[in-house]
Simulated scan of single mutants.
Amino acid sequence: MKDQAENLRRRLELQKNHLMAKTLAILSGKGGVGKSNFSLNFAISLSKLGKKVLLFDMDIGMGNIDILFGQHSPYSIVDFFEDGLSLKEIMTTGPEQISVITGGTGLTHLFTLDEDKYARFTDEFGSLLESYDYILFDMGAGITQDSAKFLLCVDELIIITTPEPTSVMDAYSTMKYIHSINDEIPFFLVCNRVFTKKEGKETMIRLQNALRKFLGAEMVSLGYLPDDRSVSKAVSKQIPFILSYPDAAVSKSLIEVVSRYVNHGLGEESIIQKSNFLQNMKRYFLGK
């Protein structure tokens, strides 16, 4: 425990002077909006740009990232907490050399860390912050009291919605809840499964206006993805659509979304930054 605490202090000190991976959570207000599929293809697209990417499946008990690319992972985060394996040992190499950590069925351990588990996780995670450009967390649908703490640790949030009124309302409620706890976390929005460009634009504008009027908050609209049969065909083939159908409308739209994210007005320096992830974990999980 003492050695782990010393390692954590050393890593926090290093972060003051070194650039670290950017951490971002991808979430939705409700299930069935294509969040995990987006997360996987988004990660692959970043990797194709030459970025080192780790995708962390945080969908508690329902993780399916490895199924989407047809490669069963022998280990999950459960093996880290229960069997003492390292984070690197439980990783799987996915398409385009992205790294993947699956969720398994016991991920609640991550949200109920005692000091020993916290120290071990943050010590190992600190080395990952130094090894990757992006660490993406594919969150479960909705927000629980426990998972909310984890969401507050990341540097940025990407919210996935569809044009359906219930999905839009759930996306707004999700942002409202997070904003009420921490009004400094940047929001990015992607509208999935749109039938027309007009529908996608109107959905974005509706959510942006609601955030401004009722919360005094802003978000960055990354764009929208069309309702494309290539997606379901790719899922059936267990090959991500950005690889199996690179010329499809949804793949071209995703490339535009990724480009907007990487270059969203903050320049190249925004790609890798001084991450606050470990400091935030100490604050929200241990109350220090």
Rank of each mutant, 00 (worst) to 15 (best):
K2A: 08
D3V: 13
A5I: 01
E6T: 15
L14F: 07
L14K: 14
K16H: 03
N17L: 01
H18V: 06
L19K: 14
A21Y: 13
K22M: 04
K22L: 08
K30N: 09
G31V: 13
G31N: 10
V33H: 05
G34I: 03
F38D: 04
F42P: 06
A43F: 01
K51I: 00
K51T: 00
M58V: 03
I65S: 04
F69R: 08
Q71I: 10
Y75P: 01
V78N: 10
F80E: 04
D83R: 14
G84M: 08
S86K: 07
K88H: 05
E89K: 09
E89V: 03
I90A: 06
M91V: 03
M91L: 01
P95D: 12
G103T: 06
G104F: 08
G106I: 12
T108M: 15
H109I: 09
F111A: 00
F111V: 02
D114M: 12
D114P: 02
Y118C: 11
A119H: 13
A119L: 15
T122Y: 08
T122S: 12
E124M: 09
S127H: 07
S127W: 05
L129E: 09
L129T: 12
Y132S: 05
D133P: 13
Y134V: 06
F137C: 02
F137A: 10
D138Q: 10
G140S: 04
A141M: 14
G142W: 07
T144L: 04
K149E: 07
K149F: 05
K149M: 10
F150E: 01
D155L: 11
I159S: 10
T161I: 03
T162C: 06
T162R: 15
T162P: 11
P163Y: 04
T166Q: 10
T166V: 10
T166I: 02
A171D: 02
K176G: 06
L189A: 12
L189K: 11
L189E: 11
C191W: 04
N192Y: 05
F195M: 13
T196N: 14
K197I: 01
K201A: 03
K201N: 08
T203Q: 15
T203V: 14
L207R: 12
L207F: 00
Q208I: 02
Q208L: 03
L211G: 02
R212N: 12
R212D: 11
F214Q: 10
E218L: 00
G223M: 07
D228M: 02
S230M: 06
K237H: 15
P240G: 11
S244W: 08
S244M: 13
S244C: 11
D247P: 01
A249M: 07
A249K: 14
S251A: 10
E256K: 15
V257K: 09
R260K: 15
Y261C: 13
H264T: 09
G265W: 08
S270H: 06
I271G: 03
I271H: 09
I272H: 10
I272E: 14
K274M: 04
F277R: 05
F277D: 10
F277N: 11
R283N: 03
L286F: 05
G287R: 00
G287M: 02
